[in-house]
């Protein structure tokens, strides 16, 4: 996880999801299930990225909104909105998390040859959150680096603690 230069992903079987107007690919093997939108419990003072909790078959699972990490628009949930329940590595520990998706497309194979490294410049997203960019049918699919996105909770919660302190006093 401290590795700065991840290997380029080899061919992968991916679940493609749409966030705002971009297509993302997550590793299909780590997806546990796909749920329709369920009631989301807001966690006061939590960062927007993981602002909610959901009940997945009797388990309390944090709900992550990748759109926050990529600085995207966050359209209101509609009939296409789904929750992708998947396993993510949090600081090396496998954790179950829900990922909010504006739409879930399909499961597809992405050839290694069609995956390119994310360009360091000219991108509106933080490059470390992207493992690579795949091409399909003339469009791009972003392969997010989930380990990176779910890492460093300390940095994210620090301002939270401060705001909590303020409101508590």
């Amino acid at each position: 996880m401290s590795q700065t230069q991840e290997h380029m992903p080899s061919s992968m079987t991916a679940l493609t999801i749409r966030l705002d107007d971009e297509l993302f690919a997550v590793e299909a093997g780590r997806v546990r299930e796909i749920l329709d939108l369920v009631p989301i419990t807001e966690v006061p003072n939590a960062p927007d990225f993981v602002g909610g909790l959901i009940n997945v078959r009797g388990r309390v699972v944090p709900l992550a909104d990748l759109r926050v990490m990529f600085g995207m628009n966050r359209p209101e949930p509609d009939k296409d909105t789904r929750i992708v329940v998947m396993e993510v590595d949090m600081d090396g520990e496998p954790t179950i998390a829900g990922i909010l998706a504006d739409k879930v497309h399909d499961v597809t194979d992405i050839e290694a040859a069609s995956i390119e490294e994310a360009p360091r410049v000219g991108m509106r997203w933080r490059p470390e959150f992207i493992r690579g960019i795949g091409k399909r049918n003339g469009g791009f699919i972003i392969i997010p680096n989930m380990e990176r996105i779910f890492e460093t909770p300390g940095a994210r919660t620090a301002p939270v603690a401060a705001s909590e302190e303020r409101s508590a006093s």
């Binding site: 939590a46 520990e93 998390a97 939270v160 603690a161």
Partner: peptide, 18 residues
């Protein structure tokens, strides 16, 4: 139910329940 590490920084809550 324990909160995941993602929420471990939030001190007002000791856990969650269904």
């Amino acid at each position: 139910k324990q909160l995941s590490k993602l929420h471990s920084g939030i001190k007002s809550f000791s856990g969650a329940t269904i």
